[in-house]
Every structure is written in C-alpha cells, then in structure tokens.
Amino acid sequence: MARLDETPHGEVASRPVAPPAVDLQGLRKDFGSVQAVRGIDLTISSGEIVAFLGPNGAGKTSTIDMILGLSQPTDGQVRVYGMTPHQAIGRGLVSAVMQTGGLLKDLTVGETAQYTASLFVQRRPVAEVLERAGISEISDRLVGKCSGGEQQRLRFAMALLSDPDLLVLDEPTTGMDVEGRRSFWAAIREDAEQGRTVLFATHYLEEADAYADRVILVRQGRIVADGTASQIKALSTGRTVRATLPGADRAALLALAGVETVEVRGDTIIVQAKDSDEVARYLLTQTAARDLEVTSRGLEDAFLALTADDGATATTVGSPT
C-alpha cells in the first residue's frame, strides 16, 4: 500500500480528544472461500470527506457493512467514535444511505421520515429535513409511486434525521442520471459544510475527484492508495513512452527521475514516467532508440492501473515530490 498522505494520523489518537470517527484494524471478511476484505487498517478523523474508490467486488460494500454493524468481521476490529457500530447507531451518531431497497412502498414519503425520526432521541424536524433533501413537495406521495431519484433523496433525508456525525453512503448515485447525480452531490456537499464526516463508496472516479478531500483506493479487499484527491490525481499525470530499443538497459532507465515502471517486450520498451521529457531526452541522446512515441495516461488509466487485478502495479505508486 502506498501512503500518499504524510499526515500522521497516529498523532491525532495521542491527543486527548474524541476518538476518530472510524477506526478499522486488521479488518478481514470471508464469505466461505471468498476473501472479500483482506486486512484493512484505516482511521478517519472527524470532519473528513472520504471516498472509498474501487471497482465492483473490491470489498467496498463488505467494509461498509462492517462499519455499520450489518455484518461481523471474520477478524479484526471496528470502532466508530470509540464504540461498537451497534452502540454508535443506537446513539444516532452514524447513519447511512444504502444503494437500493430499505423502503416500504405503502408508506408515504412523509410517513417514512416520521417513522425513522421517531426512533431517535436526538433528531431534526422532519419538515426541515425533507426541505433540505428537496422532497417536501412530495411528502404525501406513496413511496411506491416515487422515481428512483426521489427514493434516493428520501434515503438521504432518512439518514439526516438523526443529525449524525458520520454519514456513510454506499454508491449513492447508482442508477441516477447525470443531472440527478449532480444535484444529489450538491445537497451532500452543502450538508457536509456543517462539519459532518462523510464516507462514501463509489466506482465513479469523477465523483471521488469532485467531492472527496481524501480518496482511498481499494482493490481485492486491500487499500492500494490513500491520499488527497489532488495527490491521487497527480498519479495520473504521468505519460507512457514507447520506443524500439534492442538490448535496452533496464536499470539505467529505472534510475531516471520520475520513472515508475519499465517493461521490455522483445525490442520494444514501454516506460511509465511522470517526466516523459526526461525519458525521451535520455533515449534519443544516450541510446539508439527509435520510433519514439509519447502518450498521456488518462485518469481512467491510473485508476485501472492502481486497481487492476494483477498486483504488479500496486507498489509503483510513490510519494509525490
């Protein structure tokens, strides 16, 4: 795992302040022979907006289920504000917006919110929360007659009713159109400005980029990178240099500044580098390289490289200078 963010989270724990919003230690989850989560250590401080980014099946939902107490870890420990998930939920400290389901078709929007609100000791007025979620005008509509986007806004409203300190969103915009996604995130963003801690899982790169302060990349049940959105973005600014060079000196290429990987396929070399100019200059002046080609690596490529199923690229992520 590459630690991009050099902020020592351990320092927070040593101060006499409230425990972190989320603290995961050696978290593992097996489903039969399938290892969904293979050892996750993670600390999320109060006030952070964190994206859990990874492809489908990376273990995002399994991890979130354990944070919410919906499933028990096979091994490891979950602490939410220093408590078990069950204790934190009982106190209304944590709420969540799940992907699908979780609504009764034969209650109205307003009734669903009243029902949920009545279960908490500390709660915000139902009317105010419906307003904030933008569904006050459909308060009398049966949930079964609401569109997917309206139902998702209702789930969001339900999550806000207890005025939680931590809001967990599991792929909250799945199935929404572009406009729906944008307005949903605008509402989340506005809400988070009040200092709420937000953890959301997504497989949309642009969502993590646009809305998170901190992005955690997960792949095959492990964290492969952890840093600010801009640090993660920096990973994808590199370029690929391809050239024909018989008998290439791999070690020399790797020694160049900014080179991440060097692949030799017969006479062809493929170099991934942050500073492609440096590589090109070296190849053209110091070696017999020809057919030189420089292509930029997109955001999508970086994401794919970091989350690809073979482990080879995971270690290539370095700290930015």
Binding site: T7, V12, V17, S45, L93, L119, Q122, D165, T197
Partner: peptide
Amino acid sequence: MSTLSSSTPDLSGRRVPRFGG
C-alpha cells in the same frame, strides 16, 4: 487537522432511546 477540535462530536449528548425505540 486544524478543523478537528471544531468538528469533534459531542458524544456525551447522545443517548439511546428508551424501550428500545
């Protein structure tokens, strides 16, 4: 982490409902 103190939740004010909700 300068925002930490301002956003530290007041855990003491949070209670579990009576009669299991």
